[in-house]
């Protein structure tokens, strides 16, 4: 166990020495890996930030039912009672026209419009949540509601949210594809770096085999080298991400302020950042492992 630990410590030290021995190459590799990783990681962080805006209950299908302006309060209450008993409806919320006007006044920029009105132009409304979220069921229910005499307009609020959510799902898929492609790229980059490293250390590897080093012993420093390079790339990716999000947030803050929003792009959470570095290190290790498995066997001393 002690020997095992010492050998790993030595392998790590050897890997660090090789990095220190060729700093420009190591820095370039980390930069290439980092920029490649920053793309999908940035996309992921962007989607995560947007989910805070689009997410939550908005995705849940809702129907807004606006009554005719001439409908009386008694009509509205009868309709609410009727819909509460409907098997297709989960719950109903009644929004009286006075309340709707108050809500309108509270909206930034519309208070003056509301003040300019002589009478309340808004109808009574119902917001109901159907039991089924299927588009076809929503359509049937909406059509049935439209046929009622007291009802003027039925709006399916969920439609835009569903479109956005479908768009987000597509974007997530695109990012996953990009991440997969770039993961292959990262493995390929490490594979090649380690191949070159093996070639430059050919004499040492040959000698080590001749004087009784096991394959595992020879392989170890290269695996550490690949993993370290991957982790360094992950750290560069995080730096790129934080840097560019900070820069973007200056503009985003202005834009959000005009909408009375405190929305900001959030770079990766600490857990996600750690996962990125570990993932990148793992891919580096994999590239090194493949390279070492291929080229180390080829070096047979004679």
């Amino acid at each position: 166990m002690k020997t095992w630990l010492r050998q790993h410590r030595q392998a790590l030290a050897a890997a660090l020495r090789r990095i220190a021995g060729n700093k420009p190459a190591a820095a370039l590799n980390a930069l290439v890996i980092g920029i490649a990783l920053a793309l999908p990681a940035g996309g992921y962080a962007l989607l995560d930030s947007l989910r805070a805006v689009t997410g939550g209950s908005a995705i849940e299908p809702r129907l807004s039912v606006f009554l005719r302006i001439e409908a009386t309060r008694a009509d509205a209450e009868a309709l609410v009672a009727k819909l509460k008993d409907d098997a297709r409806v989960r719950d109903v919320r009644f929004v009286p026209r006075e309340q709707a006007l108050n809500e309108l006044r509270a909206v930034e920029g519309l208070a003056e419009v509301a003040a300019a009105l002589n009478s309340n132009p808004l109808p009574d409304a119902l917001v109901l949540r159907p039991k089924s979220g299927e588009p076809a069921d929503l359509e049937t229910l909406a059509a049935a509601l439209r046929a009622l005499p007291a009802v003027d307009v039925v709006q399916a609020d969920a439609v835009w949210a569903r479109r956005l959510s479908a768009l987000a799902a597509t974007a997530r898929l695109a990012i996953a594809l990009l991440a997969t492609l770039l993961a292959f790229g990262l493995v390929a980059i490490t594979f090649n770096t380690i191949r070159l490293q093996i070639l430059t250390q050919r004499a040492e590897i040959e000698l080590a085999k001749l004087i009784g080093a096991t394959d595992a012993f020879i392989r170890r420093p290269f695996l550490y080298l690949g993993a370290l390079q991957g982790v360094a790339g992950g750290v560069v990716a995080l730096a790129v991400l934080w840097g560019s999000f900070s820069a973007l947030n200056v503009g985003v803050a202005e834009l959000a302020a005009s909408y009375e929003s405190a929305f900001r792009l959030a770079a990766l959470a600490p857990g996600d950042a750690l996962a990125l570095a570990v993932y990148s290190g793992g891919l580096g290790w994999l590239g090194a492992y493949l390279s070492v498995s291929k080229y180390l066997l080829e070096i047979e001393p004679v």
């Binding site: 004499a203 040492e204 040959e206 000698l207 085999k209 001749l210 004087i211 009784g212 080093a213 096991t214």
Partner: peptide
């Protein structure tokens, strides 16, 4: 098994193989 055989042999190579 070769590494364990070679560890028990001291070899001075014709081309020395110094690093």
């Amino acid at each position: 098994a070769l590494p364990y055989l070679r560890r028990n042999l001291g070899i001075v190579f014709q081309d020395q193989k110094l690093l």
